Amino acid sequence: MAVREGRSQLAGFEEAAEELGRTKQACGFRWNKTLRAQYEAELEDAKTRPKQMMRSHLKQALMSFDQLSEAYQSLKKSHEALKHEHDDLVKWLEQGLEKVRQ
């Protein structure tokens, strides 16, 4: 069942070997010699499924990236405005302190 879960055929042979008490090489040989033809369509489906899932995840990641980029730009503008306001307040306070000292 490893291939159905997106893992390699070798992982499937290892899993079968544990369950059947055989070597993974023996399981691989039996698969290639007799069983592959019976399960060819299922195997091809399992091979393409991860690609489809990856495309879906990639689309999601790109959308998330766009949203994060927009949020970052918005935060950057807000930060710049707050920094400017902060700098103005510091100047105003410094000017006030100078007048108090005089």
Rank of each mutant, 00 (worst) to 15 (best):
Q9D: 03
R55G: 07
W92H: 12
K99G: 14
Q9F: 15
S64K: 13
F13M: 08
K77Q: 04
F29E: 05
K91L: 11
D87A: 02
L10F: 06
H57R: 10
L93V: 07
S74C: 02
Q60W: 07
C27F: 06
D88G: 14
K24W: 00
L93D: 15
E5N: 13
P50D: 05
R55L: 11
Q73A: 06
G21S: 00
S74K: 12
E94G: 04
G12P: 03
K77E: 01
H86K: 15
L82N: 07
E5V: 01
E40K: 01
L93N: 08
L43T: 11
Q38T: 10
K99E: 06
L93K: 08
H57W: 15
S8E: 02
H84T: 09
L68K: 05
L58G: 03
G12L: 00
G12E: 00
G28W: 00
L62R: 05
H79E: 15
L43D: 15
S8G: 00
Y72M: 04
A16N: 10
A2D: 05
K59M: 03
G12C: 01
K83R: 00
K83H: 01
H57N: 10
L43N: 06
H84K: 14
L75W: 05
G12S: 06
E98G: 09
S69N: 15
E42V: 07
M1H: 12
V3A: 04
V100H: 10
Y72K: 14
G96A: 10
E14P: 02
E5C: 09
C27L: 01
G21W: 00
W31V: 00
R36G: 01
G12K: 06
A46D: 09
C27Y: 05
M63I: 15
G6W: 02
K76S: 05
A16E: 12
H79R: 11
A81R: 15
S74Y: 06
E15D: 08
Q60V: 09
S74I: 11
L68D: 01
K76M: 11
A37L: 15
P50N: 02
A11H: 08
R36N: 01
E98K: 14
K77N: 04
R101C: 03
S69Y: 02
K33M: 01
K33G: 10
G6R: 01
R55F: 14
V90Q: 00
G12Q: 03
S74L: 02
E85Q: 10
M63Y: 14
L75F: 13
R22V: 06
K77T: 03
Y72W: 04
H79G: 05
L35Q: 06
E5S: 03
Q67C: 13
R4L: 11
S74N: 15
R4A: 11
V3T: 07
M54D: 13
Q95F: 13
G12F: 03
A61S: 05
V100W: 12
